[in-house]
Design a protein around this nucleic acid. Sequence first.
RNA 1: GGGCGCUUAGCUCAGUUGGGAGAGCAUCGCCCUUACAAGGCGAGGGUCACUGGUUCGAGUCCAGUAGCGCCCACCA
Length: 944
Amino acid sequence: MDKAYNPHNIEQKWYQNWEQNNYFAPSGEGNPYCILIPPPNVTGSLHMGHAFQHTIMDTLIRYHRMQGNNTLWQTGTDHAGIATQMVVERMLAAEGKNRQGLGRDSFVEKVWEWKEQSGGTITRQMRRLGNSCDWSREAFTMDDTCSNAVKEVFVRLFEEGIIYRGKRLVNWDPKFHTAISDLEVENKEEKGSLWHFRYPLANGAKTADGKDYIVVATTRPETILGDTAVAVHPEDERYQALVGQKVLLPLVGREIPIVADEYVDKDFGTGCVKITPAHDFNDYEVGKRHNAPLVNIFSRDASVLEQAEAFDYKGTPITEINLTIPQGYAGLDRFDARKKIIEDFEQLGLLDSIKDHTLQVPRGDRSNAVIEPYLTDQWYVAVESLAKPAIEAVESGDIKFVPENWSKTYYQWMYNIQDWCISRQLWWGHRIPAWYDEQGNVYVARDETEARSKYKLADNINLTQDNDVLDTWFSSALWPFATLGWPEQTKELEQFVPSSVLVTGFDIIFFWVARMIMMTLKFTGKVPFKEVYITGLIRDEHGQKMSKSKGNVLDPIDLIDGIDIEDLVNKRTAGMMQPQMAEKIAKRTRKEFAEGIEPYGTDALRFTFCALASTSRDINFDLGRVEGYRNFCNKIWNAARYVLMNTEGHDCGQDGGELKLSLADRWIWSRLQSTIKEFEKQIADYRFDLASNAVYEFIWDEYCSWYLELSKPVLSGETYSEAEKRGTRHTLVNVLEQLMRLAHPMMPFITEEIWQKLAPLAGVSGETIMVQAYPVFDNTRYDEHSEADLEWVKQVVIGVRNIRGEMNISPAKTVPLILHNGNDNDARRLKDNENFLKVMAKLESTEWTQSGDELPPAATALVGQMDLLIPMAGLIDVGAEKARLNKEIEKLSKDKERFAAKLKNPNFVDKAPAAVVDKEKAKLEEVETALSKLQQQVKQLESL
RNA sequence: GGGCGCUUAGCUCAGUUGGGAGAGCAUCGCCCUUACAAGGCGAGGGUCACUGGUUCGAGUCCAGUAGCGCCCACCA
């Protein structure tokens, strides 16, 4: 083995071996355990969030596979409608083309080409991470199986009336020319104005205070062209008399009614609200109550039409209404129209006032364009009947959120859920399985042939398919069963629905988790998963979101392979819109990563993700942790080198030779059991941070720091029998072999590499660690007495080391040790472990003395009631030792005071449980003894 | 407006029924001791955001305050 751990040399060969041998596929035996991957964008690349979640999933998958479950990690990718279409459109734009010019069929073909070309990136990167998903079952949300499921679900829901089509207000993205769902709208607080406009009263009416106009307040002046009413509160005394009267809409010249509606807040603005039902969701509701027509004034790109269009609330066009668009407005963008409206009102003397106002501006999450409420025909899912069982599934505990409080977020959304707009005016996606005849009648079926037979349409009737595609999340919602072959009743569907746990981020609880629950319950009658483990979001080390524009993105592959500073700077600044930003980012990057990023390897990165996976909602990714865990890998590597060095070519008891275990052997076996138990508990609770900690501490602080050192005297000592040496070799090999299995789910590569070498020495056979049995707690190896005895050894060693450290005694120098005033147990432990003590504490001799024996001046430490003394002659400075003792005395005095005060408090003694009081008494006693001994020591030093 | 979360060592974070404040990194001192200098041994470092309450006892439970962050929501 190489002297230093070099991940590059071991990782990829093992991944290829595993994949070629098909170890990732379900074994077909044992209880099913299944995780569905949240399908990443097919043309995307792996970011830190993926790497994190995939590590968690792979750890669970490998853990359960080794436990003998029939384990499936169902993998695949998502076609990601808008995102992918955007990328391809951008590429076309770079060539000076656009999709309209290309036409639908060629455009879609182009997207498929792009998918073929870049679709492998993320799956290749997942392999680099060691993800053991079953690639033979890899799915894509637009492959035949998924497409079939989509059509089937659509048709069935339509037949039940759950999917319907309607002309309504939708969130319209004027940049992409498509509808989007409520969830894709981000409301951002922005500074704006509240304009107060005068609307002249018609027919000579006057307000209570004698004015011939009323004042409305609005944040969107341009929509005035579509006003069809003005609303006031029914109990607003200022305007009560005007209800039923009309105003003459300026510029347009349309007479519109003043209506009374509870929706209006008397105390906001002027108490008068203009009602534009075709361009505002609230106004739509108000308008509907008062039958105010819907007047649409915008085109698909939110510029003003030449002539407005009017509809009633059933979507029927209305003609007997003034649809004037005033001179100079047609074709204006809505924001230019806004300016013009304000100017025109001002000229007319109808601009009353302007007030600063902060408002919520709706923007598209992809386009960042201001969303326009817009009247169009769209397809919807009526979610109410689906939501009810989905809520119950969580309430009843059939689905459990981890951490639990996320269920509150889920409920909050589900209780207020709105119908889901599922049609998109895009080209990339599942085309809606609906056909229209020339009269506009709609026929929903799995394909055109079925549409004709189902609706008994003659062959000469011309049918055209709906141009729209479905929201990407519609197919994602079917993921739990579409990937398993539904609507066929496959074996996989039987075995792996419900899946065991879904691992995902809170950002897609509504987009995806909730919808999978609804759809899977609806079509399989079962929940899609039993648990939902919500991970935190990965941020940079200061809690900033990682983003290209901030220039703080880390690529997981760069952490694995390393990257030099020039490449990193180029990567972070490539394609920046603003050169000054690029400069800033380059500077900061050079400062933070002067030497670039070292290659840490996959295992170190994975272990870091596990160690950071606490229950918090944000996870600040600290590169220092990766380095620390890379060092941990190196530690394991070298521990394995030591073990192999001392066991290869020797009898390790694998053939049944007699084994005699030392105290250290028995101790490490016992400690291993506690670690196994702890790990199992923490994984069951999804506490990967605590589980990884348990492994880390056991390997570093117990196996390496103590056990390996304690094995040295046995293996090299001449006084030990062959059975004792064999016992220690056996323990070295077999504990490490179990440790490799224990750690394998988190660190698959290094554990495989080492395990392959250890297995024969441990008497274990098998082609790969991946499918070995997972270690289980073995009560017969648990040994309290050995743990206590070894703890004593450690205390003696630590006592001596402390004196050495503080007194600056060279580590090379051996020292004599006097053990004074010990009891029978101390005597026994000394007798049994003198060799261990000598090696670990570098002692030249040990001496056992009783009370009354003559003692030389010495530096001291305490182990229980026993004193440890290192004679001072030539080694120790009296002043320094006195100072050291006084420091210790000071510390203990404080403890003593605290304990004593507590015990003097009658309330404590009376009310606290007896066990707690006793414990406190024992602590006081211990401290008092220690103090008196230390004080005695100080006195003795002073008498020298 | 409603809901959720966070505040513990210089930094990043654990702290599970309330009972002697922890880890990693960073810092300081000594050591290239044959597994490991990506290491060993030792050390220093915290009014657990603030205020009040419950309790014999609070980082932990309750109420409130401040700061930071997130989600949902139709005040024009």
